[in-house]
């Protein structure tokens, strides 16, 4: 079984429900600033939900010198092993899309892990701009 997370910006209304769902799922706090997904406006009333694209040949995985970033073959997500991470921020600097993030509250690197196979952002997206679906 293989799953893929897809983003369709044409359907995004910029409601930011994904941001709240993400922040609450990962930090138990309703603070949009602590989310791993950010709907960014690129024009009037036009938004792109920017989040980790789980690249096939990922710069974050390549840049991690401690093998803390590994792909979970079931969910397709590149997961950050917190026990191995030493907060050197190589991944933050290397990700070409800026989607390896720094959590300022705990001063640590955080990254989208597709919620272990059931992404909260996709579940809460009212317009289905974010979809997590089975592809094979």
């Amino acid at each position: 079984m293989m799953f893929r997370y897809t983003v369709n910006p044409a359907l995004c209304t910029g409601c930011r429900t994904c941001e709240l769902a993400c922040a609450f799922t990962h930090t138990q706090e309703q603070k949009p600033g602590r989310s791993r997904i950010y709907p960014i406006a690129y024009g009037p009333d036009r938004f792109v939900p920017v989040t980790c694209l789980q690249c096939d040949d990922a710069a974050c995985v390549k840049s991690c010198l401690f093998d803390a970033l590994k792909r979970n073959e079931t969910t397709g997500a590149i997961e950050l092993d917190k026990d191995r991470c030493v907060n050197c921020r190589a991944c933050v600097a290397a990700c070409p899309f800026g989607c390896a993030l720094i959590d300022d509250v705990h001063d640590e690197v955080v990254k989208c892990d597709l919620c272990g196979g059931s992404p909260a952002c996709a579940r809460f997206c009212p317009t289905k701009a974010l979809v997590y679906k089975r592809i094979a």
């Binding site: 690129y42 920017v50 600097a93 290397a94 990700c95 800026g98």
Partner: peptide, 18 residues
């Protein structure tokens, strides 16, 4: 890849995808 910061890269990605 190291020229711009993560915040600016996200904005750039939104602009390109948009």
């Amino acid at each position: 890849y190291f020229d711009i910061c993560d915040d600016c890269k996200r904005v750039e990605l939104a602009r390109k995808m948009g």
